[in-house]
Amino acid sequence: MKALSDLLSTDYGLMSLVVIAFVIFMSVWFGRFFKRHMDEDAAAAAKAEQSGRPVP
């Protein structure tokens, strides 16, 4: 209980929560960013394959 109290009431506890939230946000953002670009590259490769161009 002391740890939870420290986490929510001290400056270093609140900063820890900010850092944890930021890291979670970054992981979600990077995951969506990479997924979007992988899907775009897959679509471009499929389109190039259908048109008969070599895929780089």
Rank of each mutant, 00 (worst) to 15 (best):
Ala3Ile: 12
Ser5Pro: 00
Leu8Pro: 09
Thr10Asn: 10
Thr10Ile: 08
Thr10Ala: 12
Asp11Ala: 11
Tyr12Arg: 15
Tyr12Asp: 14
Tyr12Phe: 13
Gly13Trp: 02
Gly13Ser: 05
Leu14Met: 12
Met15Tyr: 08
Met15Gln: 14
Met15Glu: 15
Ser16Met: 02
Ser16Lys: 09
Val18Gly: 05
Val18Asn: 08
Val19Pro: 00
Val19Asp: 06
Val19Cys: 06
Ile20Asn: 12
Ala21Ile: 04
Ala21Ser: 13
Phe22Trp: 08
Phe22Tyr: 10
Val23His: 02
Phe25Met: 14
Met26Glu: 14
Met26Trp: 12
Ser27Tyr: 03
Ser27Asn: 11
Ser27Val: 06
Val28Leu: 03
Phe30Tyr: 09
Gly31Trp: 01
Gly31Arg: 02
Arg32Cys: 01
Phe33Cys: 01
Phe33Trp: 05
Phe34Ala: 13
Phe34His: 09
Phe34Thr: 13
Lys35Cys: 00
Lys35Ala: 11
Lys35Val: 00
Lys35Arg: 11
His37Cys: 00
Met38Gln: 13
Glu40Gly: 00
Asp41Gln: 09
Asp41Thr: 01
Ala42Glu: 10
Ala43Val: 08
Ala45Trp: 00
Ala45Pro: 00
Ala46Val: 06
Ala46Pro: 00
Ala46Glu: 06
Ala48Thr: 02
Glu49Tyr: 03
Glu49His: 03
Gln50Val: 03
Gly52Ser: 06
Gly52Ile: 01
Arg53Thr: 05
Pro54Leu: 01
Pro56Lys: 02
Pro56Arg: 02
